[in-house]
Design a protein around this nucleic acid. Structure first.
Lengths: 196, 196
DNA sequence: TATAATTAGATACGGCCGTATCTTATAGTC
DNA sequence: GACTATAAGATACGGCCGTATCTAATTATA
């Protein structure tokens, strides 16, 4: 029986490519993943891939968002600002954990060189997203009388994400004690200060 | 007259290569610099380069430390912790400025993927080096009664460097107002807190 | 159903990476 | 001054990048 060679198109093709990407990512990791390799695995050619994604980072992000369903973070409401912060850090840590570190570092490195990647990666580090979570936490903390100022600039709001990213990047993991230290030594003092 | 073809060796050769590296770095920037390109410019071959430096990052760092004489940072002593912090940030900002941003980002990206680069880059981000500068500042601040705690963990000490790096990475520059904000909203509150 | 517009797939290109191998100039040594 | 160890230089390799060009399969359209 002769093999029927049918030609995939559109979404079908995209699905096959993203599946292959995901598989390669699991099998070989971010660094060792190559566009040509994915193309081979998906039984197509890199021309096809380059028509859809400009580079490896975008391809991998596409696969990630399809298979690694990043559920968005949930606004913690645990009763104290301290535990709220720890809870949020835990959520972010879990997310980074799922990315296996190596992938995260690879993507981050890519992002350093291609500025436009920033938006795509906001899930991990934050900007707008983190504010949406932090602000309610801070407002509630103010109502409870834990803090007196709630209108913090972006730089302060983003501190959580920056600390975590730096931790993953310079050490390899994100231990509970590290997270405690970040909250107690840095974040709480900042938010408990009155501002100018 | 026939061209005399003499063969450079040892330090002579290294000097020529680093000169070519430096030149290429100025001319084309970090990303566009290639090992083969440097080899051509230095009229040698990449085999020779790979015998001495494992990759582009190490090569560039070697050229940087030869030509871009990073003078070490000076411990500020301006009379208040606030101005000391601003002064230190200024010094680091100047250093990053000299690296032209693009080079710094490139090196940082490389470092993300090759952990061992951490040590080489400690000048920019800090670990041991930063502590040597921060500790005297903090001790003096405590003597003056500005703060009550001086035994901060590395994570806190390194905060200065982390904030600056993040700033360079996510925005493009390191403005004075940004530095003021970092000091007033984050660093001072942290150091003025009592610790646990 | 014939024709036109898409788009997948095949192939080839110059460029770079990092490694291996071989030749040959230079330096040290007896 | 002859001999030997060392290291530079030349060349070639397979692999990947990113782009360009051509073909043929599929889908849309008239």
């Amino acid at each position: 029986m002769a093999e029927k060679k049918t030609r995939r198109r559109g979404q079908d093709l995209v699905d096959a490519i993203l599946a292959a990407t995901w598989e390669q990512l699991q099998a070989k990791g971010y660094r060792a993943l190559t566009i040509e390799g994915v193309a081979r695995a998906a039984a197509t050619t890199k021309t096809v891939l380059y028509r859809r994604w400009p580079d490896k980072a975008h391809l991998v992000l596409a696969a990630l968002s399809k298979y690694d369903n990043f559920t968005g973070y949930v606004v913690p409401d645990t009763g104290t600002l301290r535990t709220d912060l720890l809870d949020l850090m835990g959520q972010i840590a879990d997310f980074l954990e799922k990315l296996k570190g190596e992938t995260f570092r690879g993507l981050l490195a890519e992002r350093l060189q291609h500025l436009e990647l920033d938006k795509l990666m906001s899930r991990a580090n934050g900007n707008a997203a983190i504010r949406g979570i932090m602000q309610p936490m801070l407002d509630r903390a103010a109502e409870r009388g834990e803090i007196t100022r709630t209108d913090w600039p972006d730089r302060v709001i983003n501190l959580v994400g920056i600390l975590l990213i730096n931790e993953v990047v310079s050490r390899q993991e994100l231990s509970q004690t590290a997270r405690n230290e970040m909250v107690d030594d840095i974040l709480l003092p900042v938010f408990q200060s009155a501002g100018e």
